[in-house]
């Protein structure tokens, strides 16, 4: 899967690939363009410039293979929960998995005959996710899927979501501005800041591509410095090592993902990083 687009001012020059079958966390501060990116990929918006490709085709062509849950959780207030799921069955002929949809929607205590307008925010989220998951999509695009869920529902829904993903080999992109919400569940990271990709790639690859160095000298060459500062009499920096790191001059530590993300968001000047599988390859067509 490959997206490439230019869009002012929400998203600019966002090109990346997401290997199939990955669970991807789309992280970024509020207003970074996460929702726009997902809506573009889901075929809900037309890019002002550039192209978007999802599952090897345009989002419009892939529509029936993409599941999408918008952040606003659009649902018909006059329908009951059961009728909403029936709508999903009718609008996805041949692709609908009623069992999964019911498991996600009803959870422990949701009444199928309750009208959507009477539901709480979290319950609406369950129904919206049920529509996306019941579709048996090959790519799931979920905008802030866990935002208004209680911890029990969050755990249960994430479990159900991952179970569907593992059963069908579904690729999943989930957005959040809180990494902790997604960290355990995702194996791929996409960091968006001010409309541009800052980090993209396998979580572990991204993590191991960085190191925190502490030492006496302020000169961290030849490594790429993401963020630097002073600690006492010494200097510390979050770097992308270029070549071997001299462990005698530096105290070398492995930064956490949280640190890494914050450092990149605080320093928009630092170059973006695409690890192996994520870098956009214009010559290569998507194989998802």
């Amino acid at each position: 899967m490959r997206y490439g687009r230019r869009r002012d001012p929400v998203l600019r020059d966002c090109s990346f690939r997401l290997p199939a079958g990955r669970i991807c966390a789309l992280i970024g501060p509020n207003g970074a363009g996460k929702s726009t990116l997902l809506a573009l990929a889901a075929g809900m918006l037309r890019p002002t410039q550039g192209t978007v490709r999802a599952l090897g085709a345009s989002p419009a062509e892939s529509r029936s293979r993409i599941g999408y849950a918008a952040q606003t959780r659009p649902l018909y207030p006059q329908l009951t929960v059961a009728a909403t799921l029936r709508l999903g069955a009718e609008l996805n002929p041949g692709r609908w998995d009623q069992e999964v949809a019911e498991r996600v929607a009803f959870g422990t205590d949701l009444d199928p005959s309750a009208r959507i307008r009477t539901l709480s925010g979290g319950q609406r989220t369950r129904v919206a996710l049920a529509l996306a998951l019941g579709k048996r999509a090959e790519l799931l695009l979920l905008d802030e899927p866990m935002a208004d869920l209680d911890p029990v529902a969050r755990h249960q829904l994430m479990g159900a979501l991952l179970a569907v993903a593992v059963e069908h080999g579904t690729s999943v992109v989930m957005s959040s501005h809180v990494l902790a919400e997604l960290e355990g569940a995702c194996d791929h990271l996409l960091l968006l800041g001010r409309g541009q990709i800052r980090l993209a790639g396998d979580s572990e690859d991204v993590l191991t591509a960085h190191a925190r160095l502490t030492g006496a000298s302020p000169d961290f060459a030849p490594h790429t410095v993401v963020e630097s500062g002073t600690t006492g009499r010494g200097h510390t920096a979050l770097v992308r090592p270029q070549g071997p790191v001299d462990a005698t001059t530096w105290l070398v530590e492995q930064p956490s993902m949280e640190e890494l993300i914050l450092a990149h968001l605080r320093n928009p000047g630092a170059p973006a990083l695409f690890t192996g599988s994520a870098s956009p390859a214009p010559s290569q067509e998507a194989a998802a």
Partner: peptide, 15 residues
């Protein structure tokens, strides 16, 4: 199975 584990623990299937 991986499915059973992720459903119960909500961790990444690849893990």
């Amino acid at each position: 199975t991986a499915r059973e584990v992720v459903e119960a623990t909500a961790i990444n299937p690849n893990t």
